[in-house]
Design a protein around this nucleic acid. Structure first.
Length: 364
DNA sequence: AATACCGGCGAGT
DNA sequence: TCATACTCGCCGGTATT
C-alpha cells in the first residue's frame, strides 16, 4: 500500500487557516535574493488547475494568478509540516509490520500479513487509514494498493487527490500498458526522450522491447530495471532505511566567483553539526555543492579519515574544498560564477563515544 | 581484473 | 527574463590494490 498525502504543504496551510480553502494556495521557497525570487514548492489543486506547478519561479506563478487577487502565496513552514507529517507517519508505522516512509508526505506499508494476502481486506484497511487521517489531522490522502511498491505508487498517482484504488496482480498488465512512457515512475524528461527516440511511446511497448538493446542504451542495471518496472515487476522490500547523507544549501545574494566562506558556510556547518549530534552520528565524509549561474551542479568530497560531528571541522573542510574548487575552476579558463552553495556530510558511523563507551572505557 | 572513490546526472518530493 | 531545498541511485572514468 502506498499512502500519499494530497498537495501536502498547501493542504497543511488550508488546515491551519480554513478561510483560504477554495482560493489558489501557493507554498513558496523564497531565496532571499529579491523580494519575490524563489520557486514554488507546491500548490493546491485550485492553483494547479490555473497552471501553477511545483518548481516554477514564483514570478511565473504570480503572473499566472494575476487575475485572481484572492490567491494566497505563503512561505514554507517546515517545522509545522514536519510535526503534522510525524503524527501521521507514526500512526501509519503502527499499522503494519513493514513500513517505509519514502518522503515527508509518502509511505509504503507491506500489509501482506495484516490482510492475510486478501486484497479486499487490504482495500478495507485503505479505507480505514483514509478515515483515520481525516479524523485525526483533517487531511485528505490517496491510497494505492498493489502487489509491490511500483504498482502501488503508479496506482496512487493515478487516483489523486482523495482517492483509493486497488490493482490486483491480474490487473497489473492492463493497468500499466497504456500509460505514456513518461508517466512511468522513474522515467523523467531525459529518459523519456531517449526512449521515444527508440520508438517507445507507451509502457506496454517498453515491456516488450528488446532487453539487450535497453541494457546497451541505459546500462546493465538501469536498462533491465526500466523494463521490469514497465512489466510491473518490483522486488524492492518495504523497509525503513538508514539515512546515508544530508546537506544544507543556500542561494547567494548575488552570483559570484568567490564568497566569504566563514559568513556563508558557518550557519550551514552549524545546522549539519546539530543534526549529526541529534542523531548521534559521526561523519567521515564532508563535501561541498556549488550550483553555477547556468544551474549546473558541481560537487567535491573529502574523506576526512577521522570521524567528526564538529561545526568547526565541517566548516574548515568545506572552506578548504571551496578554496581548491575555485582554483581548479580558474585553471579551466575563466572560472565559474556560482549561484548557490552548500555542504554535505556522509559516510556515517554511530557515535558510541559519549554514553555507552564511557562505561566501556571505565570498564577497560 | 576487481574494488573504491569521485563527480556528474537524473529522478523524485 | 526566472530557475528552492533537499535525498537517493546509477553511470562512467580513474585510481588503487
Amino acid at each position: 500500500m502506498c499512502v500519499d498525502l494530497d498537495y501536502f504543504y498547501a493542504q497543511c496551510e488550508e488546515v491551519r487557516n480554513p478561510s483560504i480553502k477554495g482560493k489558489p494556495v501557493v507554498v513558496c521557497v523564497y531565496s532571499g535574493r529579491t523580494e519575490e525570487s524563489g520557486a514554488v514548492s507546491t500548490s493546491n489543486y485550485v492553483a494547479r488547475n490555473l497552471g501553477v506547478k511545483s518548481g516554477m519561479p514564483i514570478a511565473f506563478a504570480k503572473k499566472a494568478l494575476s487575475k485572481y487577487p484572492e490567491a494566497v502565496f505563503l512561505p514554507m513552514d517546515n517545522e509545522y509540516y514536519d510535526s503534522i507529517s510525524n503524527q501521521i507517519m507514526n500512526n501509519l508505522r503502527s499499522k503494519s509490520s513493514y513500513f517505509e516512509q519514502s518522503s515527508i508526505d509518502e509511505a509504503y506499508l507491506d500489509i501482506t500479513n495484516e490482510s492475510s494476502g486478501d486484497y479486499s481486506k487490504a482495500y478495507n484497511l485503505g479505507k480505514e487509514i483514509k478515515a483515520e487521517i481525516l479524523e485525526n489531522e483533517n487531511l485528505t490522502c490517496s491510497v494505492g494498493i498493489g502487489p509491490n511498491k511500483l504498482v502501488s505508487k503508479m496506482a496512487v498517482d493515478s487516483t489523486k487527490p482523495d482517492g483509493l484504488i486497488l490493482i490486483s496482480p491480474e490487473e497489473v498488465q492492463v493497468f500499466l500498458e497504456s500509460f505514456p512512457i513518461g508517466k512511468l515512475f522513474g522515467i523523467g524528461p531525459k529518459t523519456e526522450e531517449k526512449l521515444r527516440s527508440l520508438g517507445i511511446e507507451t509502457v506496454g511497448q517498453l515491456a516488450s522491447f528488446d532487453r539487450q538493446v535497453l541494457a546497451h542504451h541505459f546500462g546493465e542495471k538501469l536498462g533491465p530495471q526500466l523494463q521490469d518496472s514497465a512489466r510491473g515487476i518490483d522486488e524492492r522490500p518495504v523497509r525503513e532505511r538508514e539515512v546515508e547523507q544530508f546537506s544544507r544549501i543556500v542561494t547567494l545574494k548575488q552570483n559570484a566567483n568567490s564568497f566569504n566562506f566563514q559568513d556563508v558556510l558557518r550557519p550551514l556547518a552549524k545546522d549539519l553539526s546539530d543534526k549529526l549530534l541529534a542523531a548521534n552520528l559521526l561523519c567521515e565524509s564532508i563535501g561541498i555543492i556549488a550550483i553555477t549561474s547556468q544551474l549546473k551542479t558541481k560537487t567535491r568530497v573529502r574523506k576526512t579519515g577521522s570521524l567528526t560531528s564538529s561545526e568547526s571541522e565541517i566548516l574548515d573542510v568545506a572552506s578548504s574544498l571551496f578554496q581548491s574548487f575555485f582554483s581548479d575552476e580558474n585553471l579551466e579558463l575563466g572560472g565559474v560564477t556560482i549561484r548557490r552553495v552548500g555542504i554535505r556530510v556522509a559516510s556515517f558511523v554511530k557515535n558510541i563515544t559519549d554514553s555507552k563507551e564511557t562505561n566501556l572505557r571505565d570498564f577497560l
